[in-house]
Computed example of a mutant assay.
Amino acid sequence: MENLETFKHIYQRACERKGGPQALLTIIDKPLTNHKLSQIGDDRFLAEFSKKVFQSGFVWRVVRNKWPDFERMFFDFNIEKILLIPDEMLEQKAADPSIIRNYTKVKTIRDNAIMIDAVAREHGSFAKFVADWPSEDIIGLWAYLKKHGARLGGNTGPYGLRAMGKDTFLLTNDVVGYFTKRNIISGSAQSKRSLTAIQQSFNELQQQSGRSLQELSMIISKSVGDNYI
């Protein structure tokens, strides 16, 4: 890609900004292996997606503090039990002050349980489905979650995947700013054209470096933007 820097240049700038290779290493995380990811219970995926749905547009700290009550209220996100929750019970749970009272978001818990269950029936488990999805088309997995899940579009689905350990880049302000400044994308970063260009860029950087999408995403973010050490 013509306007894309080499990984070497991006990495050197990130090291210079963060105090050297060792300092940079301490703030760069790696994703789980596909094997470890495939062993995670599907209930944990539902829990994390639900958490990210509630955190979207809300104070993350408040959601984290209330999360034990969410776990209790929704049977530790047991898929089979949640699939059996009738509308009336969902409404009752959504009105409980121990959680965040937002019926629209509460409904996504059951909706996403339906998606996860359908995938698990076809692929053995939702975790295996996610683990097997190729990183060179991670935007395809994002699109799947947006189409078949509830309120998992935008950054919500990708942040949920990253939290679970799936190798994915994230469209943070710094990452979007980098690709915009390099004229690799213009307009919305969420457009199909922009997403494709960003995926192709990450694939190229991955071929150069042998690093995961997660590492590359974090290194790019550390190479630009406000420099907090």
Rank of each mutant, 00 (worst) to 15 (best):
T6S: 11
I10T: 03
Y11T: 02
R13W: 05
E16Q: 14
R17L: 13
G19A: 09
G19C: 04
G19Q: 03
L24G: 11
I28H: 04
K36N: 15
K36T: 14
L37E: 00
L37F: 04
L37D: 05
I40N: 02
D42K: 09
D43C: 12
F49H: 03
K51T: 00
V53Q: 01
R61D: 13
R64C: 15
W67F: 06
E71L: 10
E71N: 00
D76R: 12
F77A: 06
I85N: 04
A94L: 04
A95T: 05
P97K: 10
T104F: 04
D111Q: 11
N112M: 08
V119S: 05
A127L: 07
D137I: 13
L141V: 08
L145D: 07
A150C: 09
N155R: 13
G157S: 12
G160Q: 04
L161W: 02
A163W: 00
V176A: 12
Y178R: 00
R182G: 08
G187M: 07
S188L: 03
A189F: 01
A197M: 08
Q199N: 13
Q200H: 10
S201M: 08
L205N: 04
L205E: 02
Q208M: 07
R211A: 03
L213I: 06
M218H: 00
I220H: 02
K222W: 10
V224I: 14
